[in-house]
Amino acid sequence: MSDAALPRAATSRAPVGEALAGLMLTLPAGIAYLVLLLLPTLAAVTLAFTDYELGMPALNWIGLDNFREMLSDRGFAIALRNTVIYVGTVTPLSIGLGLGAALLIEAGTRGRAFFRAVFFLPVVSLTVAMAAAWQYLLHPTIGPLNALLRQVGVTDPPFWLSSSDTVLLSLAAIGVWESLGYNMVLFLAGLSAIPRELYAAAEVDGARSAFDRFRLVTWPLLGPTTLFVVTITLIRSVRVFDTVAVLTQGGPNKASEVLLYTMYREGFTYLRLGYSAAITLVFLAIVLALVWLQTKAMDRKIHYG
């Protein structure tokens, strides 16, 4: 019936009505896309090559000067380094712990929904509010963590968020706490897609220990999920902003300066929009590089078509 209504022969030339409908239905999204996404993005790229500041009457072209300045800007170098350290800590830890939690939850029947909810809770909690809770928890003098440390005999516990030695570590811990549950949920979805029969086959084939079965079945079949989780965690942690803005404002002494916070400060506090746009471009380049790496890895291996 359907084939009679819409003959396949017409595929190459869509009926006029259908083409018109297609255009009409994509038009609102197209306009919004153009005005709110494409043009501003191109404008940001353009701004990066100017020294524009809010209120200036015209754009002043300065070529690559912003990027040259970046190379000699100590603050930017620190921000980049801190971002790399932060990402390098949060990504493996939140993925490892997320996978561990998913495997433990999946391994039994008791308490599944409960623990899933517990680990997922930080994802749906207002980050700013929870950052305040962490600030109290990690407070050098009145915080419960240091109270606990003093109780077990640590005489001068670290100052956590207020010391330049530990601030990045503390932020990373909060970052892990925030994204562990998200990764766990993705891993749980990946695990549930592995056919049960494969585990049965592995047992019959002689995989006696749980570790053998993990290596033979779970880890390889989780490959696509893991790759996706790695990419998305990298991208999410490169974007770290909320906790820094709320808790440290990049301090103490720039020790927690990160890429997006520097961009925010240059653009919206110092109103140096050109320089800020240049930093945005670096940020965009990092994100694109990560996505490119993911596509590369996807093509090379984990595809079991």
Partner: peptide, 11 residues
């Protein structure tokens, strides 16, 4: 591919 932070400045 474009994070929402990129068009933020011009917007």
């Amino acid at each position: 591919l474009v994070p929402p932070h990129v068009p933020a400045l011009p917007l």
